[in-house]
Each structure stands twice: as C-alpha cells, then as structure tokens.
Design a protein around this nucleic acid. Sequence first.
DNA 1: GATGAATGAGTATTCATTCAT
DNA 2: CATGAATGAATACTCATTCAT
Lengths: 210, 210, 210, 210
Amino acid sequence: MILATRISSPRPQMRKEPRQARSRATVESIVQAGTRVLSDRGWAGFNTNEVADTAGVSIGSLYQYFPDKEALVEAILQRHLDDVLAVLSESEAGGRSLKQLVDDLVTGMIAAHGVHPALHRVLLDVVAPHLGSSPAQAKFEATYLARYRAIVAACPRSRGKAADEIVAQVLCAMIEGVIHSAARSGALKSDELKRELIHAAYSYLTGGEP
Amino acid sequence: MILATRISSPRPQMRKEPRQARSRATVESIVQAGTRVLSDRGWAGFNTNEVADTAGVSIGSLYQYFPDKEALVEAILQRHLDDVLAVLSESEAGGRSLKQLVDDLVTGMIAAHGVHPALHRVLLDVVAPHLGSSPAQAKFEATYLARYRAIVAACPRSRGKAADEIVAQVLCAMIEGVIHSAARSGALKSDELKRELIHAAYSYLTGGEP
Amino acid sequence: MILATRISSPRPQMRKEPRQARSRATVESIVQAGTRVLSDRGWAGFNTNEVADTAGVSIGSLYQYFPDKEALVEAILQRHLDDVLAVLSESEAGGRSLKQLVDDLVTGMIAAHGVHPALHRVLLDVVAPHLGSSPAQAKFEATYLARYRAIVAACPRSRGKAADEIVAQVLCAMIEGVIHSAARSGALKSDELKRELIHAAYSYLTGGEP
Amino acid sequence: MILATRISSPRPQMRKEPRQARSRATVESIVQAGTRVLSDRGWAGFNTNEVADTAGVSIGSLYQYFPDKEALVEAILQRHLDDVLAVLSESEAGGRSLKQLVDDLVTGMIAAHGVHPALHRVLLDVVAPHLGSSPAQAKFEATYLARYRAIVAACPRSRGKAADEIVAQVLCAMIEGVIHSAARSGALKSDELKRELIHAAYSYLTGGEP
DNA sequence: GATGAATGAGTATTCATTCAT
DNA sequence: CATGAATGAATACTCATTCAT
C-alpha cells in the first residue's frame, strides 16, 4: 500500500494531460467513479480495479492518466475541495453586520458539507492525513481560513494579531467539529442545529471577558 | 478486509482467557505493540504480522488470544477508551460554579487527548466507523455525554429537555473539534488555546439570545 | 477451511468469464492442473498455490477466474462429471433385451470409472460430501439414476412403483460398490470381474423370490 | 499435513504404553474424543487441539501417548474396526443353509455399520487411503473376507479356486456398496432394503449361468 | 507426569501495477 | 490509444508440535 508512507517528493499529478475530448471524458468518468466508490464503499473498499470497472473503463486506461492510486485519490480530493469552495463562495455575498457574516458562513459551511458528507469525512479524516499536503489542500485551507479571518477582523472585540489568528482557528475548528458530528448523526439539515451553531459562534465572538 | 463490512453479531472478544502470568504478559505486549503500530504506522500499516513482530511474539500467539484482526483492534480501542475515561474522571472533582465545571471539563478533555493523540485520531476517525458500536464504545459515549449533560443542566439558561440534549451535543462537538484540530497542528498544550476554548464554551452556555 | 461448512447460498461459479483465447487457455490449464494435483496428491495435498504452480500460472491468475478454492474444486468436479456422463452415454445405443441393457450399463460404468479412477474416488468420497449438492451433481445423479430406472422398468418381474425405486438404488449401489472396490485394487480392466458383475446384476433383476 | 504423504516406515503406534489406571483412562478419553470429533466435524474439522479439548485433556498429554496425529487416527481406526468385528461376529452363530448364511451376514454387516455410520465412512473413505495399510486393517480385512469365503465355499455352484476368490470379492463389494449407500441416505434400518440386499446376494450366489 | 503457552511453516486471498495484443 | 490478462508481494489466519514450568 503506497499510501502507508508519506511521499514528499513531487510527483506528476497526471501522467499525461488529456488533450482530446474523448480523453477528457475518460478522465472525468474515472474521477467520478472514484468519488462514488470512495463514498459508497469507504476507504477499505476503494481499489483501482473497482474504480475502473465502475467507470466502465479498462484498468489500463486508468493508469494511462493516473500514475498510481495516490494520484487518483488526489484528483478526487482536489475536485471535492473545489466543489466545496464553490458552494462556500455562494454564501459570501452577505451583509456587513457580524451577525450576518456568521450566519452566512455557517449556512455556507453546512451547504458545503451537504455536497457529499460521507465522501468528505473519508477524504478529510482518512485520505488527507496520508497525503503530504498537496497544493490543492494548501489553497483550500487558505481560502477557508481567509473567510474566518475576515469575520474575526470584523469583530469589534480588541485583540492582537496573534490572538486573532487563534480565534480564527478555534472558530473554524468548532464549526467544523459541530458540522462533522451532525453529518455523522444525520442531523445536518436540522434548523435547530443551525441556530445553535450560529449562536455558539456568535457568542464566542462577542462574549465579554469572563 | 474484514473491517469493510459492519459486523453486528457479537463475537467473543478473546478466544482464550490468559490464565498464567506468562500469557497475561503476552497479551499485554500484543496490545501494547498493536497500539504502537497503529499509532506510528496508521491504519494502512497496521497488520497482524507486524504487530506480532513488534511484540516479540509469534503470529500464532497473537491468534491464540485474538480470533481475528478486528478483535485486536477492538481490544486496543477498548483499552484506549478506558485510559481516556480514567484521565477524564480525574478532572471531575471540581467546583460547583458553571465556570469551574467548564474549566474542569476542558482541562480533562485536553489531558485525555494528550494520552496518545495520533492513536486517538486513528481510532476515532478510521477504526470506529468500521466497528459496529461495541459495548466499549457505548459505555464510553454514555460516560462522555453524561458529563456534558451535567454541565448543561447546571446552566441557568432556561431550555426544554430536547433543547438541552442538542446543546450538550453541540458543546461536545465543538470542544472535540477544537481539540482534534489542535492535536493535528500540535498545539494541544498551548495555554492560549485552552483559554480560548474555555471562553468559547462558556460564552455559548451563557450567551443571551441574540 | 471453507469446505468444513456446507454453503447453500449460490455463489458465482466464476468471477469473470474468460473472453480472449489466452484467458480461456489459462482457465483450462488451471482446471487441468487442479485435476492433476487432486488426483496425484489427494485432498490434503490440494492447495491453490500448488495448482497455480502446476498450471504454470501466477496465483493471481487463479483468483481472477475462481473466487475461492471451493469454486475451483466445483469446476473440477463439474468437468469430471461431464466426462463421466459423456463416456456413459456412449454405451447407451445398446439392444433391447434386459441382458443387453445390463451388459451395456456395466460396460459403460466401468469405462466411466476408468477415466480418472483416483480423481473419481477423491471427488466422490471426499469432496462431494462437503459441497452442498451443486447443480452439476444434481444433473449428474438424475441422468445416472434414469439409466438404472430404465433398466428396472424393462425388467419383467412384477413390482410396485416404490419397489422399483428401491431396486434401482440397490442396483446402482452394488454396481458402484464393485467398481469402486475394483478401482482400488486395480482390477478395473479384468474381464472376469466384468463378467461377474454383469452376472450379479442380471441375477438380482431376474432372480425369483427365494 | 503429515497424512498427505504415505509413511511406510514402521512407527511406534504409541509413544508409551499406559500402565497405570489413570493413564489408561486418559488414552481412552482421547480416543473417544477423537472418534466423536471425527464423526461430528468430519476430517476437515479434526485437529489435535480440538480433540484434546473435547477429551478434557491438555494437548501435551495427547502427545505424551500419541507421537503424532497419524498415530491417533490409527488408534481410532483400530478401535472402530475392532468394534465392527465384534458386532459382526455376533451374527456368526447362524444356521447351515446358504440362505441362512447370507441372511446372517447381511444382518451382521448392517448392524456393524450402524455402530457409527458417519465415522465409518470418514475412516474408510478418507482416512484409510492415507494410511499405509496398518496391521489393524490387515487383520480386519482378513477376518472380513474369511466370512465371505466361507459363504462362497458353502455355495454348491461349481467354480475353481481363483473364481471363488473373485466371487467373494464381488459379493463383499456389492454388500458394502449397498450398505454404504444406504448409510448415506439414512435408509440403513429399512427392512425393505435388507430384504432386497439379501435377495441380491442370494441371487448372485445361486443364479444359473446366463 | 500433566499442563498450556508458544512456535512458525503453510495456505487462502487481495490488489496495485505492468505489458503484450 | 485502449484493453484486460497476468503478475506477485503482501497479509490474515490455522494447526501440528515442542518445551519450560
């Protein structure tokens, strides 16, 4: 199992850029099949032969475009992170009040995790720790945190720069924690949960020194 | 891979109860070796031959006491959950004020996760989802949530029963989220983080309706 | 050992149908090698690695076509039963007199057991009892017994339906018993034996009430 | 698996003769447990640890008396053959007419196979072929065939010596075949079967030249 | 003698990856 | 380029047998 060892040396993400329409369609179907298999069967049931079968493509074709299993997983991760960012950015047009910002953020995050909850958990909990942080993840984290920082910055409570950074991380972690937990228990769409989460985040940002 | 399918039928945790001192030592060394391997190499690198080697024991001895790989993992999980509960309970003697309760809880949770951070993440993120909730986990979760419920109950804000349950879950999820995130980034021992987490939890519990 | 427990649920006989000429040759060589190993080394010496080696094929190739050891054994059994039926049917064009029918049957049965005596014994004595009666066996037994029933029906001695059934079974068992015994002692090709067996069968069918 | 290869060199059947009462009891319980396991679980489920467990004896004790698995199996076989001979000899006091002799023989054979039908089949079909013909088997076969020869000799039909030998073997094989088949289908106690078998044997012995 | 803990060679099976067609 | 047959290192698990206590 290659993923057992962290590989830090830069590998080509793709063996060969798909130039023609047919090639692009093949790659597309492979990534989608991989997404489906990973989501349905979990990491333990994810193997390249199964993915090729599901994609209706020969195993040889899969390896034509992805040098190894890891590259495939990375592509799946990349694609998913892009999807999540896209969903997230849709909630960014919101108002200016802190209350509004928090509401929009939580709404966006919940929507983002609704894309593919099972996949998200597998990718983030199981796959990501094995992958040396890829550019995909770096960009994702950056965009992600920027949003949090913007909110913290919009928060009137006086704090130093360093403190702000920590607050952003705590805010991020607590929102993610609650949403992941809700995803696990299937309560992701509960309005009550959303209200509580917004309340928790807002309280944290505005709560006076205890 | 056995873990790929949820097995709900109760299997015997151990094939044979170790009676003599020597065999108890063997089982002990197997569980410890398993813990070490799982923690160091992750789930993908966890295999019974490696564990037996690490324990300095033959593969046959491992299977004399554990009917299969899954049973070994369960024993490791069991043992870890017991450790965490033990650490957690040490922080329970605390005061009566809500502030004190929250402080003790966060202190205990941070300490609990300091036991074996890497192991904890593998067990909870990767292993647990595959295991049909074992008695070990059930007891653990119960004890866990009881603590949270006690705090929510001690909180003056008026809420219905159902609401209390949700608040307990959100509180639990946010604390876990922050601590796991900190464990990942190695910031688990930061005092600043602890302060922020306590602040967040306390604010959530006492924050007025926005 | 999978064969220790009767498995009644229908499994796919083959994991993948061999399409190309090359793969058909591979499957063929695997089945033949399996036949050879089972015949030469007996059930205890029959293992998939040995079969793959003998076939000059990698172990992976074996499992590409047969989901497990049991399926391979079933294929070998199937093939052998087909061979036996084929040999048996060659003796069916015989005359109309009872004497002729019995002669043809015994001739056919001896020829059938000459195909692969050692294999036949292993398959019937050791393997078959473990396999939940497969379609292959069902068809085989049916064809087998039909032949016996036809003979009993052609026998003038008056008997009820139920009695006929028992006579067919006794006739079948006694012929099989003698032939198996002869196979064990290597006397299968003795003309004297054949004469005696025919005599025994004919006497049984025509003997008056004692 | 030792039984996979025929061992022709004479081994000591027992490592150590049990002298004291306790030792004899231990050996007795081991052989009985082995008989039970072989009969219930079949050859595939027969292993020395299981036998020792069933006997309520440590695996070490088993190997104190039996040098290896094969010796144990041989002892079980020996014991069973003795039992069968004992049952068989009870039917030997019969009358003088051929009809009476045949009746007694069939009665005795059916009774003998009723001792432990499942065990008998496993021992004779699976185990015996692996064992180089032991003294136990030799004596058994001799006694067995003697009975058949006596009957053939009592039969008035004129035949040469060599012919008589073949008749005895065919008679033996056909009776065994029918009884084994009946044991398989659970019809061993059917009176109708017994009558047919006697009829078949008698017809064979008295049938005129066809 | 008796015990049962320990051993390890052996066996079934999977799956990432290659390469001839 | 696409195919899918073939590979084999890796891994879970069994069971006959030994030997220290």
